[in-house]
Design a protein around this nucleic acid. Sequence first.
DNA 1: CACCAGGCAAGTA
DNA 2: TACTTGCATGGT
Length: 214
Amino acid sequence: MIKKRLSRIYKKLYSSFGKQRWWPGDTKLEVIIGAVLTQNTAWPNVEKSISNLKKAGKISFKKLSKERMSGIARLIKPAGYFNIKAKRLKNVLRFIAESYNSSLSLMQKADGASLREELLGINGVGPETADSILLYAFGKPIFVIDSYTTRILSRLKILSQDVSYEDAQKLFMDNLPKDVRLFNEYHALIVKLGKDYCRKNNPRCQECPIRDEH
DNA sequence: CACCAGGCAAGTA
DNA sequence: TACTTGCATGGT
């Protein structure tokens, strides 16, 4: 019974790791910026970039929109891929300006499913980035999938390793209550598990808190 | 030293 | 549709 299994795994992760307090970010804009900067990048490097942006006073829709691309690239350098990410941030800002009158509170009122499609239309925003923005910036009940999720679930023989993003997401959303707090915490706990126990060259599966689920 | 991280898009066949 | 490659810094 997949519903019970997913719920049991969640409880085990939560009781071993506790609340994760995601997303680390003070404002919606900061969460959105972090979602782009963390693409294929370790979080500490994102934090350095966010800190640079803060020190420069650029975590503001107006200020960041006015900033030149080379200026953004310079500030976000520690996150890697700084040229392409500067462009992606610009693309996101332009979308918000054109479709939501530069208003994140107006964007907040949008329907989750249609906003998801709009976000996916931005060059530089794929499914994980879009869903991270929806869940963690806007509190929409959408489950975020990442490489840890499919890796761990394939080890548990719940999914095959090459499952599509959409199918993995459907598994969670069809078998869990659509609860924002649950989706928020579950994804964060999976990332914690992946980082600490299931990393590629560091599989400490013997000490893994869901070892008995294998 | 090698490997990889809270992805995505563009190019190729 | 299904691979492959570029993007780039910083931690382990």
